[in-house]
Amino acid sequence: MTIDRLDQPRELRRSFRPHYAPEAFGKLAEEIARFLGTARFLVYMTGFVALWIGWNSLAADWLAFDPYPFIFLTLMLSLQASYAAPLILLAQNRQGDRDRVQYEQDRLAYERNQADIEYLTREIAGMRRSIGELATRDFLRSELQRFSEERPESS
């Protein structure tokens, strides 16, 4: 009988489930979703469907692999859509996660900036108060003039 110890890692167990790196899979899903949203994909898909229909409509009967009503083409397009939809949703979820992180970083930066602005505002107010107590040039001139007028001339 073995006792599980919490201070030691567990032993690796064999698993028959497929292993994949979620980050790598997510990046691949984003790249595919990004490609599916381009005009290039639409042109490629239109060309593929036109070629498929043209081949199966105009080729000899023994060369046509998907005769009218193009059931295999419909199946292939449904298969493509069934894979595209979850990949697009996965890419949107990852984008939402990135947006939340970016929002949080923007909020923290805003709070830091707000604190800096408040600090600088207090500093400027303190400096204005200090400057108000300093003697200005005009004040010093008037005091010197008053002092010289009060002082008797000694010669």
Rank of each mutant, 00 (worst) to 15 (best):
F70P: 00
D97L: 11
M127N: 06
D66V: 11
W55K: 01
G96M: 07
T38E: 04
A115P: 00
F147V: 07
E31W: 03
W55V: 01
P152F: 10
D106F: 02
I3D: 08
A64M: 09
A125V: 12
N113S: 10
E118Q: 12
S82P: 00
T136M: 12
F25L: 11
D138G: 15
A85P: 03
M76F: 15
R5V: 02
I32K: 02
L134W: 15
A59L: 11
Q8R: 14
S57D: 02
W55A: 02
L79G: 07
P86Q: 04
G126H: 08
G26I: 12
F147D: 02
T2Q: 09
Q92S: 07
P18K: 14
K27N: 12
S142A: 13
A29M: 12
F70G: 02
G26A: 13
E150Q: 01
D7R: 12
S82D: 01
Y68S: 04
I117Q: 04
V49S: 09
R94Q: 10
A59N: 06
Y44W: 14
R137F: 14
P67A: 10
A64E: 10
L87K: 06
Q105V: 10
P22I: 05
G54V: 00
E11S: 13
N93A: 09
E133L: 14
A91Y: 05
F35Q: 09
D4G: 04
S155D: 00
V101A: 06
F139D: 15
L36K: 00
N113P: 00
D61E: 15
L144Q: 04
I124T: 12
E133T: 09
V43D: 14
E150V: 00
A39Y: 09
R5K: 09
L120M: 09
R128L: 13
K27A: 14
R100S: 06
L108C: 01
L51P: 00
S57P: 05
W52F: 05
S142I: 12
R122D: 01
D97R: 09
Y68M: 07
R13Y: 05
F72G: 07
D61N: 14
L73V: 10
A81I: 08
Q114R: 08
V49G: 10
A50G: 03
A29Q: 08
E104N: 04
M45Q: 15
Y68H: 10
W62H: 14
E143Q: 15
L36S: 02
G96T: 01
T121N: 07
Q95L: 08
E149I: 09
F147H: 09
T121K: 12
F25E: 07
R107I: 04
F25G: 00
L77M: 11
Y103C: 02
P69W: 04
S154E: 11
A85W: 05
P86E: 05
S78Y: 03
A59M: 08
A29H: 08
I88A: 07
F70S: 03
A33W: 07
L89Q: 04
L108Y: 08
E123I: 12
S130P: 05
R151G: 00
L144E: 01
T2N: 08
F147T: 05
D97T: 04
M127Y: 03
N56Q: 05
Q102A: 13
I131Y: 15
Y103L: 13
S57A: 06
S155T: 08
